[in-house]
Design a protein around this nucleic acid. Structure first.
Lengths: 193, 193
DNA sequence: CCATTACGATACTACGTGGTATCGAATATA
DNA sequence: TATATTCGATACCACGTAGTATCGTAATGG
C-alpha cells in the first residue's frame, strides 16, 4: 500500500517504517482537528517530524495519504466478532467496541471529514465504503446470531444511530447507548434470546 | 435572514427576490454536484445568472451563503407532522417524506458536504444541527404517538439508518425502507398499536 | 427629474497550499 | 570503499479562488 515491491532487498537506505507510522498518526490527528480541506501537508509533516518529500515518496497525493490513514486507523479499532455462545452479550460487545472507538479515537471526526470530501475525491469515497464494510462484516455476524430477521437492516439501525449522533447531531456518544440499543432491538419483550 | 430590515420602504431599487431565490437554488445544485469546497462562487453565480457583488450584498461569506441555502432547502422539504388518528400511518407518512426528499432533491448530497465542512465552518455546523432539529421535531411527534418508550432513541434509529445509507454507504435509499423500518420498530410482534 | 440603491459584468488582489526541486547527511548493499 | 536510496530541511512554483473595487445601467421613492 505504501512501500515499493519487496524485490530482493534493494540497495540503498530503506524506507523508515517509523516515519510511515508517524505520518499516519499525524494525518489522523490533523484531519480530525481541522477537517479534510483545512488539514495542510505542512502541519501534518511538522507534527510527524518528517518532511513533504518523505510523504510524496510514499503517497502520490493528499487524498491517497488520508485514505490510507483511515485504513490504518480502522485496522486498530475494529476487532473481530466475539462468539461467547451468548448472542446478546456478543452484540453488546461489538456495539461497545464501536462506541469506544468513537469516544476515544479521532476516528469519528475523521469520518466526518471523509463524508464531506468523498464527493470530491474518489480515493476517499473508496476508503469510506471500505471502513463501513469492515464494520458491517463484524456487526452483521453477531446480530444474525441474535436472531435478527433482516440483519442488514439491523446493522443500518445500529451503526446509523451511532454515526447519526456523531456526524449530524454533533453530540458525543454515550456509553449507555449500548444498553438502550440492545434492549430496544433485542430486548426481552421481542424475540432474541 | 438575507435582506436588510423593513424600515419604512427605503429609497432606491429594491433587492430582487428572484435573484435571491435563484442564488439559493444554484448554491444547492452546485454544492450537491461538487461538494462544499469544490463549489465555487463563480459557478454558482453563473448558474444563477447573477454576479458576485450581488451575492456579497446578501451574505457576508461563502459559508453563510451555503448555510442559508440549506435552510431554504429544508423549508421546502419538511412538512409538519400528520395526525390522522392512526399512529402507524403517521409514522409511515413522515418516514416516507424523508425518504422522498432524499431521493428527489439535492438535499442528501448537500448534507454530506455539510457534515465534512462543519468542522471547519461554524456557520455550517449550526445549519446542520438546525436541519436535524427540525426533522427530529416532526418525527418525534409521530413516534411518540406510535407508543415509543424512548422516542429520542427511535428518532436516532430511523433517521440514523436513512442518513447512514446515504452518507456512509453511499447507496441510494429505497422506498421500501418505509415498510422495513416501521415493521421492525413498530411491527405487530412488539408493542405499537 | 433627482437621489438612491441594486443590478450584472469584469478585472483585480491577496492568500493559502499542493506539489516539486535541491540540498547535505544518513544508512543500506556490493 | 563505491554506489544507491532515503532521510529531513528549505525554498520555490503554480494554481485556484474568496472577496473587493469599479463600471454603466435599471428600478425605486421624493
Amino acid at each position: 500500500m505504501t512501500a515499493r515491491g519487496r524485490a530482493a532487498a534493494r540497495r540503498g537506505r530503506p524506507q523508515s517504517e517509523a516515519a510511515t507510522a508517524a505520518l499516519m498518526r499525524a494525518t489522523l490527528a490533523v484531519v480530525a482537528a481541522r477537517g479534510y480541506h483545512a488539514a495542510t501537508l505542512e502541519e501534518i509533516v511538522a507534527r510527524a517530524g518528517s518532511s513533504k518529500p518523505t510523504v510524496y515518496r510514499r503517497w502520490p497525493s493528499k487524498p491517497r495519504l488520508v485514505a490510507d490513514a483511515v485504513r490504518f486507523a480502522l485496522a486498530a479499532a475494529n476487532p473481530s466478532a466475539p462468539a461467547t455462545g451468548r448472542p446478546l452479550a456478543d452484540v453488546r460487545a461489538v456495539v461497545g467496541n464501536v462506541i469506544h472507538a468513537l469516544r476515544t479515537t479521532p476516528l469519528a471526526r475523521v469520518l466526518a471529514a471523509l463524508v464531506g470530501a468523498a464527493a470530491d475525491e474518489p480515493a476517499l469515497a473508496e476508503a469510506l465504503v471500505e471502513v463501513e464494510r469492515e464494520r458491517r462484516r463484524v456487526l452483521r455476524a453477531v446480530v444474525e446470531r441474535a436472531g435478527a430477521r433482516d440483519a442488514d437492516l439491523d446493522v443500518d439501525l445500529v451503526l446509523g444511530a451511532l454515526y447519526f449522533r456523531v456526524l449530524m447531531r454533533r453530540m458525543p456518544v454515550d456509553a449507555r447507548l449500548v444498553a438502550r440499543l440492545t434492549r430496544r432491538l433485542y430486548g426481552r419483550s421481542c424475540d432474541g434470546s
